[in-house]
Amino acid sequence: MYRLPCGTFNTTYKQDMALFRTKFLKFWVTMFFVFLLVFPFVANVYLLSLANIIGIAVVGALGLNILTGFAGQISLGHGAFIGVGAYTSALLVMRLHVPFWFALPAAGFFTAIVGMIFGIPSLRVKGLYLAIATLAAQVIINFVMIHWSSLTKGTSGLPVDPPRLFGLVFDTDQKYYFITMTFAVLATTFAKNLQRTRVGRAFMAVRDNDLAAEIIGINLFKYKLLAFFVSSFYAGIAGALWAHYVTIITPEHFTIAESINYLAMIIIGGIGSVLGSIFGAIFMVLLPEVLRLIADALSGVYPSIGNFFSAMREVVFGLTIILFLIYEPDGLNHRWQMIKAYWKLWPFSY
C-alpha cells in the first residue's frame, strides 16, 4: 500500500497523479541523478562495466515487466527478442553502414514487429499455452540466428563497432556509461508514465481479467498486440545497446537461459512494478559477481572450487528464485515499500 507522509494533502487530480508526490521524493530522485552523473568519474572500470550491464538489463527487464507485469502475458522468449534487436542493429551498422543512432531505433521497431508476430497466438491462447508459444518463438529465433550463418555468422560471432558521435567513439566503459544510462532513464520514465495512461490501465485490466476487460470496452486484439509491441521494442533497444557494448555477438547469449534470467529479474524485483524491474536487474547482475567473490575467497581453502563455479551458480540461481517465490512472492519492491512504510509510521505501525 502506498502511504503519503503526514501533512500531504492532494486537492487536485493533477497532484494525485503526479510522479513525484512529495518534495522529499523529488529531492532524493534529484540526488540520485546527481549520483548517476558523478559515478562515472569516481568509479573504476570494473564498477562501470557492472553499471553498463545493469543499465542494459534495466531496459530489458522493464520491457518484460510491461508485457508480463502490466499486461499479464507470460513470455519465455524475451531473450530471443533481445537477440533480434542485437542482430538487427549490428547488421544495419556493419553491413549497411547506417549510423548507430538510426540503427538503434530501427532495431527497436524491427524487434517490436517480430514480437508482435509471435504475440499473435496470445489472442487465442493464454496462461500456460502462451508461455509455451513464446518458448517456441525462443527456440525458432535462436535456430535462425545459428543457422542463417551467411547473415549472422552463426556461432563464430558477429563483430560490431562501438557507436560514434561527432568523431567521439564510445569504446570505453566510461563513455558507454552515458549511453546506457540515458536509455535506462528514458525507458524508466516511459514505463512509469505508461502506468498512468489509458494504455497502461488497459494493460492492467487485461491482466486482471481479460474477458471482463473486453466487456468494458477494451479491444483485446489491439492491447495484447500493443503490449507485445512495446515490450519487444524495449527488448530491441536493450539488444542493440548490448551488441554495441560487447562488440561481438553470438547466438549463445540469446538462449532460453537469458529469457529465464529476465523472468527471474522481474520476479525477484516485483511483478508489475517499475522500481522492481530496476531492483531485479541490479540483483541479478550482482548475484554472480558476489558468488565469484566468495568463490575467489574460498579458493585458498578449497582449491577445487573453481571447477564447480558454474554449477554452484546454477544452484544458487535456482535456490534464489525458489526462496523468493516462497518467502517474498511480491519481490524486492514490496520489501522496499514495507521499509518505507515502517519509517513513515514509526513508532505507531498500525
Binding site: 554452484m312 546454477e314 535456482g318
Partner: peptide, 28 residues
C-alpha cells in the same frame, strides 16, 4: 505445496528455478 493458490507465472518460475537447482546439483 507452499505454492498452492499462487498465480501461474509464479508456479512456472518455481519449476524453472527448481530445474536450475537440480541441474547444478547434478553437475556438482
Amino acid at each position: 505445496r507452499p505454492m498452492i493458490g499462487e498465480p501461474i507465472l509464479s508456479v512456472i518460475m518455481l519449476t524453472i528455478g527448481l530445474s536450475a537447482f537440480l541441474k547444478g546439483l547434478v553437475i556438482i
